[in-house]
């Protein structure tokens, strides 16, 4: 008959429950090492095998490379269109040299769609930011130049 009184008791008890609100963005949540955020790219590791571009379900990766003095293929351009990228992780799965990986960066909101086309420089910088070699917003020269 008075089942709702039990419910009132339950909600009253919850007053003392630990608050579970996350303090994002003041406290960034820890997503763990497998988190699939925005890509990071290591140009020096890339062997231009084109597997990532082929496996991509949305064809959001385009790349080009050329032969250099050492007779090996080197990457020239590497663009990811984050307008259509679904962060499915298939590209990092097929990459034989782990040149393309996922970082834990995930905030992609911009005011302009053009900003969502990320080129090789941005992805390379993201790799160094995420590995702690470069601070966010810092340029090559300021950090003393890694390459």
């Amino acid at each position: 008959m008075f089942g709702f009184l039990k419910g009132l008791k339950v909600t009253f008890k919850q007053l003392a429950h630990k608050k579970i609100t996350l303090q994002y963005p003041d406290v960034m949540p820890d997503f763990g090492e497998r988190f699939r955020g925005v890509h990071k790219f290591y140009p020096e590791k890339c062997i231009v095998c084109n597997q990532c571009a082929r496996v991509c379900p949305t064809s959001c990766i385009s790349l080009s490379g050329s032969k250099r003095e050492d007779k090996k293929l080197h990457i020239d351009t590497y663009d990811i269109n984050f307008e259509i990228c679904i962060l499915c992780d298939l590209c990092t799965e097929v990459c034989p040299t782990e040149a393309i990986q996922m970082s834990d960066k995930f905030e992609l909101a911009t005011y302009n769609r053009v900003d969502l086309y990320k080129n090789i420089y941005w992805l390379d910088e993201n790799a160094r930011v995420s590995d702690g070699l470069l601070k966010k917003g810092e340029t090559e020269e300021q950090s003393g130049g890694v390459k």
Binding site: F31, G32, R34, F35, R36, I86, L87, C88, D89, L90, M102
Partner: peptide, 12 residues
């Protein structure tokens, strides 16, 4: 799931 496969909704 996130710790297992790195995503929170679209696990793949």
């Amino acid at each position: 799931f996130n710790r297992l496969c790195g995503a929170r909704l679209t696990f793949n």
